[in-house]
Amino acid sequence: MTTAISIQNLAKTYANGFEALKGITLEVEQGDFFALLGPNGAGKSTTIGVISTLVNKTAGSVEVFGKSVESHVYQTKLDFGVVPQEVNFSLFEKVGDIVMTQAGYYGLPRNLAAERCEKYLRKLGLWEKRNERSRSLSGGMKRRLMIARALVHEPRLLILDEPTAGVDIELRRSMWEFLTEINNNGTTIILTTHYLEEAEQLCRNIAIIDEGKIVENTSMRKLLNELDSQVYILETTSQISPGFDLNLNNASLEIVDEHCFEVTVSGGLSVNDVFAVFSEAGIEIDSMRNKTNRLEQLFLSKLESND
């Protein structure tokens, strides 16, 4: 399989002496939906900055589809689109003009640019806003505009730096659907996000970066398999007596109130074993859900082990 992006021993030390990247090595395969996770200041945006040539690296190399971003600067730039974390278009320009201008920078003839502009503004629900000044858009619309702008030259690789930050849940889910669709159509996607649920839902592979170092680089499935315990919140129709206990190895119970409790299951114990105990005690379960995002637990444990 072709490698979409290959980062070797990438290091970046800023002028003030801050070491943002300490020799990271990372590969993303073509067609992947890849998550780059890390706390604030971990080096995610610096990594994206170096790939997109907005940040000068101190050492190491970056290749996009087998070509160096330094020696094949114009060819590699054609292959990727970047959606930055902060809004970076002119707030005085019209929505349509912003996308058309970007198409022009990529050398698209005007008729093709207009076609693509309509295609992506429609897909992202901004076509009706095309003649409005961009400053009048809501936060979510501004983020969608940056995605439309990044896609207008139809890159093979799309890099998104926290694309759904500050976006409401409904809009976030519609953006997930859109990103999944373009990934299914062959676009490789690299995503940095603070929403761990987002990474778990969308991405097949994941790297965790902390203090400028990669502390984990694996598939999402393998990473989640590392979890040895899960916490469920169960709600019951009948009342729970204060002294009730599961009396099971590898399972513990904490009563939240008389109709709600938390069960922690570990060591390969099946949820069915827990349900069997409730059934014997005559407690009817009304609903069950995961207490915490599973990836969040892992993420925190990886960061702790890096300290």
Binding site: K77, N88, S90, L91, Q102, Y105, G107
Partner: peptide, 18 residues
């Protein structure tokens, strides 16, 4: 300078424009 200030100059810098 306005492009720099609003960061919209990044649109140009990430594009394949010599």
């Amino acid at each position: 300078f306005s492009h720099k200030f609003q960061h919209s100059v990044e649109e140009l810098l990430v594009a394949p424009v010599p």
